[in-house]
């Protein structure tokens, strides 16, 4: 049986008195390439932040790798790439190597030492995303697509089992987006579970294995094919579906 990596049971979440998520239940299995889709304000990022413990809720409803979120501390199993737009300023004084180094801190005790083995891991992660030659450049001097690759390398360097990406291609040109999704497909084929948040995932239909459609509630959760069939019956008010199911 496939290992369940993330399990959410009947979760609700409110911002003050405003309901953001209602009755969410879903399981993410090892090897999944899941796209969480929905309009702006549908609760996608809120769901992700709840899974990652960035928002506090009734955490007993979420478990990671079979452990309750409140007890979970194997954060090195998790890679996270936040929205680039809110990530850092372009003049931030950090080299590519220093940025990827941060991905190795989870699990180390202070004072955290970067060993020679760690340097090899950093080089390998940068090689995997084809950015090794830029390791001494300041991250702000790279293009948007290159910066995203560096952030992926940072998320990959600790060999995570699951990678969460929050709207990773915002502000990135079309060609770079396609290359980026090829990279994700390649990582998924190596066994890394991928959870991608997007409000427009038209270009990644051929890569994802599962889709979760969110609108405060989980409207749909299943394979891409099942989603297209489901969408035929519920075609009203689904502006994103022409991208996901081009034959409809």
């Amino acid at each position: 049986m496939d290992q369940t990596i993330v399990e959410i049971k009947k979760m609700n979440y409110k911002f003050g008195s405003t309901l953001a998520l209602s009755d969410i239940s879903l399981e993410i299995k090892k090897g999944d390439f899941l796209a969480i889709i929905g309009q702006n304000g549908s609760g996608k990022t809120t769901l992700l932040k709840l899974i990652l413990g960035l928002y506090e809720s009734e955490k007993s409803q979420i478990s990671l790798f079979g452990e309750n979120l409140t007890e979970f501390n194997s954060w090195n199993k998790i890679g996270y790439v936040p929205q680039k737009a809110i990530h850092f300023e372009n003049n931030f004084p950090a080299t590519v190597e220093e940025v990827v180094e941060m991905g190795l801190l989870s699990g180390k005790k202070n004072p955290k030492i970067i060993t020679k083995e760690d340097r090899v891991k950093i080089a390998n992660a940068l090689k995997e995303v084809d950015m090794l030659k830029y390791k001494n450049r300041r991250i702000g001097n790279l293009s948007g697509g290159q910066q995203q690759r560096v952030l992926i390398a940072k998320a990959l360097v600790s060999h995570p089992e699951i990678l969460f990406l929050d709207e990773p291609t915002t502000g990135v040109d079309t060609e770079t987006q396609c290359k980026f999704y090829e990279l994700l497909k390649n990582l998924n084929s190596k066994g890394i579970t991928i959870v991608l948040i997007s409000h427009d995932i038209g270009r990644i239909t051929k890569y994802v294995t599962k889709i979760a459609s969110l609108n405060q509630r989980l409207e749909f959760y299943g394979s891409h094919e099942e989603f297209c069939a489901w969408d035929k019956k519920h075609s009203h008010a689904k502006s994103h579906t022409h991208n996901l199911c081009p034959n409809l």
Binding site: I78, P82, A94, M102, P111, I114
Partner: peptide
Amino acid sequence: IVVFYHDLFYMTFDEESAKVSGI
């Protein structure tokens, strides 16, 4: 600053990701 250099650096770079890494 020397002992917590990496944690402080990570938090300065991206507070949210630093939290996810267990800092």
